[in-house]
Amino acid sequence: MAINVIIIDDEKGARESLHKLIEKYCPQITVAAKATNIDEAYQLIKELSPQLIFLDIEMPNGSGFDLLKKFDHIHFDIIFTTAYDHYAIKAIKYSAIDYLLKPIDIDDLKNAIQRVLQKQKNKSIQNEQLLSLLNNIKPEQTDKKIALHEGDGLTFVRLKDIIRCESDGNYTTIILEGNRKIVTSKTLGEYEELFANENFFRIHRSHLIHLHHLKKYIRGEGGYVIMSDGSQVEVSRRKKQEFLDKLSFL
């Protein structure tokens, strides 16, 4: 079954090179159209109803997100393409949506397409992913949502609700308000990086806490903290000073 795709990018080079790469390495999909800005893209999507779009984020006359905003329901898969945009990539990661970095690596492209093809079509999940993305992308947004891989599916939680994360080998247990726990297949390091600009702090090799939920710090060699759910978490000796410095800024 051939899949129709639309490439949306303002730069000719990027557009054309992606087109060529798809033609050459991904025979299972067909490029139905190319758009240079979001207005053009909107029209084309409506006309052609593609199963997948490659969407550039940074474009004059409206970003990729602005395009998505125009749809009430999205019936197509999305792979974002971007040269470099730390901020946007973070938001995409929060929502667990696929993205490609330009210049495009052929293997990455193949993998992304593979995932789209294999993915169980669950439009409601995808919609939720997109909603959380559009929600998170707002700069003033404080109530961010994050999609967590739990088993095969995705669970959406509010960043606010995360009390702490605990490492368990290659898995990470995320402890949420209301005694909920989610075990994810990502490492604690990945979460530390993901939450880098949020109010999180790695107090221990296997503990990342949300300072928003910090109730008390008890002094000791390293000391320990008591979180809002009453759990006690040890602070490592190595991290103590940095932690105290951080606290003094709060």
Binding site: E16, K20, P103
Partner: peptide, 18 residues
């Protein structure tokens, strides 16, 4: 500017693929 660098490289990539 990484944006500039990578976009430029993407543009050059086009000549290669072409």
């Amino acid at each position: 500017n990484p944006h500039f660098i990578f976009n430029t490289l993407a543009s050059i990539q086009y000549f290669i693929t072409d």
